[in-house]
Design a protein around this nucleic acid. Structure first.
Lengths: 219, 219
DNA sequence: GTCTATAGATTGATAGAC
DNA sequence: GTCTATCAATCTATAGAC
């Protein structure tokens, strides 16, 4: 609910251009996440970044340019996180690590996930090109990999596409619907133990659901 | 992309007050879903409902009152849909029907689901009371039911809470992220067959994931 | 680079003729 | 009940002093 960066004070002259831009991006991410593109105002972002509103237009040409950079930043994180998916030997390890990593990102990058959800819900007016090229390529590649697992008899026959959507949906839910989850948790954020339990449950159900045995499972 | 109601023409005098209010609500739902509360404008809703902007304020006191009615309408549908959850004999039937019904609602009430997602992502500024009372009660009741299934040895031990979130997340994803799913589907909406396949895959993974055998399953 | 002041457009809401 | 005209507030964006 306060500063995102702590090194140099907001007013300090020792702050580099890069640091200021990063502070603006962090605040913008939170505001765009909570109010959507149309609901967010440059004034609110400026207030949170402790800058005059005009300075935002000095560092970022327009509201839309700023928004685009926020969305692009998230998209990059998502893609990198997804790489751990294919650097593993077995389906069990690959899927477990991918799910665990995505759950972790839902905890550490809640606002980024919400901005993405907002953008997609609105029909991806800004980043449609990413959906059509980068995300599509990534998805096709992963689908082929899962199909090879199935052909090799390692995984029960399921349509890989619906499996991927299930993983995305379930993990991102913990970021996008964090407020609902916390309300149903008595108004408190999930504890470390609860995050571990949720991750384990999600991994367990999905892996068993496609015929795999989770690592370190009893029955 | 056009009219939601077709019976009497928008301009017609034969339209009852109820019909007009319903047409406004339908249009408002779509606009709020696609742009969020702050991003939506009364002007756009009026245009889509083919009414002068001032008339909206005649039928609904304010933008927020209109929004609240839209959200309440969705919430009611969700709760009623969820009733089918407990009117079944076995866990297999109860969960299969619940998941299938929620998938169906994601297809028929896409915009409603998005409005709900938007509201929750923004911290439920309007309907927090529903989260704290109605949804919480519903959730607690279902958790107790699932715990009895587990105690009876019908279901593999999992934390019911994470299982419920998984079902919500996965089914609602097909509404909230419909645009992304359609883009990855070559820009086309899912066909009847694809909806059936997705529903079956989701049911199959979740049921097997908690130790149940889906109805009419081969292996 | 930073800020104040403000332009120009758009917003939610309303007054008042019909 | 319906509509035009308009208000006051707020928005994005910019001009220009420092």
């Amino acid at each position: 609910m306060d500063e995102t960066q702590s090194a140099p004070k907001p007013g300090s002259r020792s702050e580099s251009r890069e640091e200021i831009e990063r502070r603006i991006l962090d605040c913008a991410e939170r505001v765009f996440a909570e109010r959507g593109f149309g609901g967010a105002t440059m004034q609110l972002i400026a207030d949170q970044a402790e800058l005059p509103k005009a300075n935002l237009h000095y560092y970022f040409e327009s509201k839309e340019k700023l928004y685009r950079q926020v969305v692009e930043r998230i998209f990059t994180i998502w893609l990198e996180a997804a790489d751990s998916f294919e650097t593993s030997a077995s389906p069990e390890v690959a899927l477990s690590r991918y799910i665990a990593r995505k759950m972790e990102l839902s905890r550490t990058h809640r606002y980024g996930s919400k901005v993405w959800a907002n953008e997609v819900m609105q029909g991806a007016p800004i980043i449609q090109d990413y959906l059509e090229v980068t995300l599509r390529d990534w998805t096709e590649t992963r689908i082929e990999l899962i199909e090879r697992w199935i052909a090799a008899g390692l995984v029960r026959p399921v349509e890989p596409r619906w499996l991927l959507y299930m993983i995305w949906a379930t993990t991102q839910h913990y970021a996008d619907f964090a407020h609902q989850i916390e309300t149903l948790n008595g108004g408190r954020a999930l504890s470390d133990a609860q995050w571990r339990a949720a991750t384990e449950t999600v991994c367990g159900i999905i892996l068993r659901g496609i015929g795999l045995q989770p690592e370190g499972a009893g029955a």
